[in-house]
Measured scan of single mutants.
Amino acid sequence: SDEELKKRIEELVRRGNKDEARKLAENANSDEARKWWEKLEQL
């Protein structure tokens, strides 16, 4: 689900694993996940 995906992306970003988070968001084929990633990346 998008919610689970967003949690995983956020967790990866928090751990400093941005590349992994980006790949996850891009491969998810989910606009919501991509937007979430872009938002987190700004922080």
Score class of each variant (00 low, 15 high):
Glu32Ser: 09
Ala33Gln: 03
Asp19Trp: 06
Trp37Glu: 02
Asp19Met: 07
Lys35Gly: 07
Asn17Lys: 13
Arg14Pro: 00
Ala33Cys: 13
Lys7Trp: 10
Glu3Phe: 11
Val13Thr: 02
Lys6Val: 11
Asn27Trp: 10
Ala28Arg: 04
Glu41Tyr: 12
Leu40Val: 07
Leu43Ile: 11
Glu26Cys: 14
Arg22Val: 03
Lys6Leu: 15
Glu26Thr: 06
Trp37Leu: 15
Asn29Pro: 07
Ala25Thr: 04
Asp31Gly: 04
Arg22Thr: 03
Leu40Thr: 03
Glu26Tyr: 11
Glu20Trp: 03
Lys18Met: 15
Ala21Gly: 02
Arg14Ser: 06
Arg14Ala: 10
Lys35Ala: 13
Leu5Pro: 00
Glu38Asn: 05
Leu12Val: 01
Asn27Val: 07
Asp31Tyr: 06
Glu41Cys: 14
Ser30Pro: 03
Glu26Gln: 11
Gly16His: 04
Trp36Thr: 01
Arg34Glu: 02
Gln42Ala: 13
Ala28Ser: 14
Asn17Pro: 00
Leu5Thr: 03
Ser30Leu: 05
Asn29Ala: 12
Leu40Ile: 12
Trp37Lys: 03
Leu43Tyr: 10
Asp19Lys: 08
Glu32Tyr: 08
Ala33His: 04
Asn27Ile: 09
Asn29Leu: 14
Trp36Tyr: 12
Asn29Val: 07
Arg34Lys: 08
Glu11Met: 07
Arg34Phe: 12
Glu11Gln: 07
Leu24Trp: 03
Glu38Asp: 07
Ala33Met: 15
Glu11Ile: 05
Lys23Thr: 09
Ala33Thr: 14
Lys39Gln: 13
Lys6Cys: 14
Ala21Ile: 03
Arg15Phe: 06
Gly16Ser: 02
Lys6Ser: 04
Gln42Phe: 09
Arg8Gln: 10
Trp37Gly: 00
Gly16Asp: 02
Leu40Gln: 05
Arg22Gln: 06
Lys6Arg: 11
Ala28Val: 07
Ala25Asp: 01
Ile9Met: 09
Glu4Val: 10
Glu10Pro: 00
Glu20His: 04
Asp19Val: 08
Arg8Cys: 12
Leu40Pro: 01
Glu20Asp: 06
Glu38Lys: 08
Glu3Leu: 12
Arg15Gln: 13
Arg8Ala: 09
Leu24Phe: 03
Gln42Val: 09
Leu40Ser: 04
Asn17Gln: 14
Arg14Gly: 04
Ala21Asp: 00
Arg8Asn: 03
Asp19Tyr: 04
Lys18Gly: 08
Arg14Asp: 03
Glu26Asp: 07
Glu10Trp: 13
Asp2Met: 15
Leu40Gly: 01
Ala25Phe: 07
Lys23Gly: 03
Leu43Lys: 07
Asn27Asp: 13
Glu32Thr: 08
Arg14His: 10
Asp31Leu: 08
Leu5Tyr: 05
Leu43Gln: 10
Ala21Arg: 00
Lys35Met: 10
Ala21Phe: 02
Asn27Gly: 11
Asp2Lys: 08
Val13Pro: 00
Gly16Thr: 00
Lys18Ser: 13
Leu12Met: 07
Trp37Arg: 04
Lys23Met: 12
Lys35Glu: 11
Arg8Pro: 00
Ile9Val: 03
Ala21Gln: 00
Lys7Asp: 04
Glu11Asp: 12
Glu10Arg: 11
Leu43His: 07
Lys35His: 09
Leu24Lys: 02
Asn27His: 09
Glu3Asp: 13
Glu11His: 07
Arg8Val: 08
Lys35Ile: 11
Ser30Gly: 06
Lys23Tyr: 05
Glu10Phe: 09
Glu10Ala: 10
Ser30Met: 04
Ala25Asn: 01
Arg15His: 08
Leu5Lys: 00
Glu20Val: 04
Ala28Ile: 15
Arg22Pro: 01
Asn17Trp: 07
Glu20Met: 08
Leu24Glu: 02
Glu41Arg: 14
Asn29Trp: 09
Ala33Asn: 03
Glu3Met: 12
Arg22Ile: 04
Leu24Cys: 08
Ala21Thr: 00
Asp31Val: 08
Asp2Gln: 11
Leu12Ser: 01
Leu5Gly: 00
Ser1Asp: 12
Asn27Gln: 14
Arg14Asn: 06
Glu11Arg: 04
Glu3Lys: 08
Asp31Thr: 08
Val13Cys: 12
Ile9Gln: 00
Ile9Pro: 00
Leu40Cys: 13
Ser1Phe: 15
Gln42His: 10
Ala33Glu: 03
Asn27Cys: 13
Ser30Val: 03
Arg34Gln: 06
Ile9Glu: 00
Lys23Ala: 12
Trp37Pro: 01
Ile9Lys: 00
Val13Arg: 04
Arg15Ile: 11
Leu40Glu: 03
Gly16Met: 02
Lys7Thr: 07
Arg34Asn: 04
Arg15Leu: 13
Leu24Ala: 03
Arg22Lys: 11
Ala33Ile: 15
Val13Met: 15
Ala21Val: 02
Glu10His: 12
Glu3Gly: 08
Leu40Tyr: 10
Lys39Phe: 13
Leu12Cys: 07
Ser1Pro: 12
Glu20Arg: 04
Ala21Leu: 08
Leu12His: 02
Leu43Cys: 14
Asp2Pro: 09
Trp37Phe: 15
Lys23Cys: 14
Asp19Pro: 03
Glu26Phe: 11
Trp37Ser: 01
Glu20Leu: 10
Asp31Cys: 12
Glu20Gln: 08
Glu10Leu: 15
Glu10Gly: 06
Arg22Gly: 02
Arg22Met: 06
Arg34Ser: 04
Glu20Ala: 12
Glu38Trp: 05
Arg15Thr: 12
Leu24Gly: 01
Asn17Tyr: 13
Asp31Glu: 12
Trp36Lys: 00
Ile9Thr: 00
Ser30Arg: 03
Asn29Cys: 12
Asp19Ile: 08
Asp31Met: 08
Asp2Gly: 09
Glu41Lys: 13
Lys7Glu: 05
Val13Asp: 00
Trp36Ala: 03
Ala21Pro: 00
Arg22Trp: 09
Gly16Leu: 02
Lys23Arg: 13
Lys35Pro: 01
Glu11Leu: 05
Glu32Val: 10
Ala28Trp: 13
Lys35Tyr: 05
Asp2Tyr: 14
Gly16Ile: 01
Trp37Ile: 14
Lys6Pro: 00
Glu26Pro: 01
Lys6Asn: 05
Ser1Leu: 15
Lys18Leu: 15
Lys7Ile: 05
Ser1Val: 13
Asn29Ile: 09
Ile9Gly: 00
Gln42Tyr: 07
Glu20Ile: 05
Lys7Tyr: 06
Ala25Glu: 01
Leu43Phe: 10
Glu26His: 07
Glu32Cys: 07
Glu26Met: 13
Glu11Gly: 05
Asn17Met: 15
Asn17Arg: 14
Glu32His: 05
Asp19Phe: 05
Lys23Asp: 05
Glu38Tyr: 07
Glu38Pro: 02
Leu12Gln: 02
Asn29Thr: 10
Glu3Ile: 10
Asn17Thr: 02
Glu10Ile: 13
Arg14Glu: 05
Arg34Leu: 14
Asn29Arg: 09
Trp37Asn: 01
Lys35Val: 09
Asp31His: 05
Lys39Ile: 13
Arg22Leu: 07
Glu4Met: 11
Leu40Arg: 03
Glu32Asn: 07
Leu40Ala: 07
Val13Gly: 01
Glu4Thr: 09
Leu24Asn: 01
Lys6Gly: 03
Arg22His: 04
Leu40Asp: 01
Lys7His: 07
Glu38Ile: 06
Asn17Phe: 14
Asn17Ala: 13
Glu41Asp: 10
Trp36Leu: 09
Lys23Ile: 11
Ala33Leu: 15
Lys18Asn: 10
Arg8Ile: 11
Lys35Trp: 06
Ser30Cys: 08
Ala28Leu: 15
Ala25Lys: 02
Asp31Lys: 06
Val13Gln: 02
Ala33Gly: 04
Arg15Ser: 13
Ala21Lys: 00
Ala28Tyr: 05
Lys6Gln: 05
Ala21Ser: 00
Lys18Val: 15
Asp2Thr: 13
Lys7Ser: 10
Gln42Trp: 06
Glu3Gln: 11
Lys35Arg: 13
Ala28Met: 15
Trp36Met: 04
Glu38Gly: 03
Arg14Lys: 10
Ala28Thr: 07
Arg14Thr: 05
Asp19Ala: 10
Glu20Phe: 03
Lys6Phe: 15
Trp37Thr: 01
Arg15Lys: 12
Ala25Cys: 14
Val13Tyr: 15
Glu10Cys: 15
Arg8Thr: 08
Arg14Tyr: 04
Trp37Gln: 03
Glu26Leu: 13
Ile9Leu: 08
Gln42Lys: 13
Lys18Thr: 13
Lys35Ser: 11
Lys23Gln: 12
Ser1Thr: 12
Arg15Trp: 05
Lys39Ala: 13
Lys23Val: 09
Leu12Asp: 00
Leu12Tyr: 02
Gln42Gly: 11
Gln42Leu: 11
Gln42Asn: 09
Gln42Glu: 09
Asp2Asn: 11
Glu10Thr: 12
Arg15Val: 08
Lys18Trp: 15
Ala25Gly: 03
Gly16Asn: 03
Trp36Val: 03
Ala33Trp: 14
Lys35Leu: 10
Asp31Ser: 08
Arg34Trp: 13
Arg14Met: 11
Lys6Glu: 03
Glu11Trp: 07
Arg8Gly: 00
Glu10Gln: 10
Arg14Ile: 08
Lys7Gln: 10
Val13His: 10
Ala25Met: 14
Leu40His: 04
Asn27Glu: 13
Glu3Trp: 12
Glu41Ile: 15
Gln42Met: 12
Arg34Val: 07
Gly16Val: 01
Glu32Met: 11
Ala21Glu: 01
Arg15Ala: 13
Arg14Gln: 07
Glu41Phe: 14
Ala25Gln: 03
Asp19His: 06
Arg8Tyr: 05
Trp36Asn: 01
Glu3Tyr: 11
Leu5Ala: 01
